[in-house]
């Protein structure tokens, strides 16, 4: 009798594997959160000496002088080198400047590629171009840097910079001495590296444009270009901005390629032809000598640079997400412009 109907409360069916499964996946999920917290704590601890001793000067001065060969003194309970000064402004300016240049070059090119794939180009080219973009995104950054130092930088020094100087000499940032590596090389290399990100995310967003809206535009006598400009781009704006900011995040943190082509400056750039230095490039190129500092302050200062870089990239990513998910971008009033 008992086996003819299924019991609704048989304990054997309340499987233990479900609970285990939930706990394990929850633990794996929270690992990323825990990891970020640990990272912040470790970085903060490593840079504490620099934060206390250097204070605001760290953010407002341009001189980075570890004074490794002077004598160890004690400041506020931390040991430091007598006469040393740590100011990150050169690297901060270089990081922001090269990334903004990368966006200025990369966004139009990336959006153009996306438009070509989704709107204008023949369907049979979509696959190959997308594959090419994926390949480009997967190239190790040191190879970009190597190419930059061998080809791009000499080309900029010999042809591009002189041409800019010739035609745009009246703008102060396009005049004066041309260095082989620096602002332009870094910005262009970074642009090449973020174009695949911007193009593929923009393309995905453009593909979401309802055919009905495009047909509505076409029926009103809009040309292909007008449809792209007035309907597709506004509709995909969220994705274009999202992709650009992801690209910005990548550009801000990019290390190896920039380290090779930035020129390693320890002074602020006066023109687009100057060498620069960035937070990440400087950290990787000076870590070796940092360990020779007997006071340990050099390493702490690099730690603070890393903290600043982490803060910038986090702020960029979080604000991008806020901008894209809420706020004016999701308001349909702002989607299509005339």
């Amino acid at each position: 009798m008992g086996e003819t109907t299924h019991s609704l409360s048989d304990k054997r069916y309340r499987s233990i594997s479900d609970s285990v499964y939930k706990i394990v996946t929850l633990a794996l999920c929270s690992m990323s959160f825990v990891f970020i917290i640990i990272l912040l704590i470790v970085l903060f601890h490593a840079s504490l000496a620099s934060i206390v001793v250097n204070g605001l000067r760290f953010f407002t001065t341009t001189t980075w002088n570890p004074a490794i060969n002077s004598k160890v003194i004690s400041v506020d309970g931390f040991s430091a080198m007598w006469g040393a000064n740590y100011g990150m402004l050169v690297f901060f300016v270089g990081t922001l400047g090269s990334s903004i240049l990368a966006l200025l070059v990369g966004v139009p090119v990336g959006v153009g590629i996306a438009l070509f794939i989704s709107e204008f180009g023949p369907k049979r080219l979509d696959g190959p171009i997308t594959l090419l973009l994926q390949l480009m995104a997967g190239i190790p950054s040191v190879i970009f840097g190597f190419w930059g130092i061998l080809i791009l930088s000499p080309w900029i020094r010999k042809f591009f910079a002189p041409a800019l100087g010739k035609y745009l000499f009246f703008i102060p940032i396009f005049s004066g001495q041309v260095y082989s590596s620096g602002f332009l090389s870094s910005g262009f290399i970074l642009a090449l590296m973020i174009i695949p990100i911007i193009a593929s995310i923009s393309r995905d967003a453009m593909a979401q444009t309802p055919v009905l809206l495009k047909e509505g535009g076409r029926a009103l006598g809009l040309t292909d270009w007008e449809i792209s400009r007035k309907i597709v781009i506004p509709y995909a704006r969220q994705g274009i901005i999202g992709g650009s900011i992801l690209g910005l995040g990548r550009a801000l943190g990019e290390t190896m390629a920039v380290a090779l082509v930035c020129g390693g400056a320890d002074f602020l750039p006066k023109t687009m032809f100057y060498p620069i230095n960035t937070l990440s490039a400087f950290i990787v190129t000076s870590l070796d000598s940092a360990f020779t500092d007997p006071s340990g302050m050099y390493v702490a200062a690099l730690g603070e640079l890393a903290l600043v870089l982490l803060a910038i990239t986090m702020i960029v990513n979080i604000s991008a997400r806020l901008l894209v998910s809420k706020g004016f971008l999701s308001n349909p009033e702002n989607v299509v412009q005339v």
């Binding site: 309802p210 809206l213 047909e215 509505g216 309907i231 009033e333 989607v335 412009q337």
Partner: peptide, 8 residues
């Protein structure tokens, strides 16, 4: 299908 643009 009605296809107004998402503007005013």
């Amino acid at each position: 299908k009605p296809n107004p643009f998402p503007i005013s």
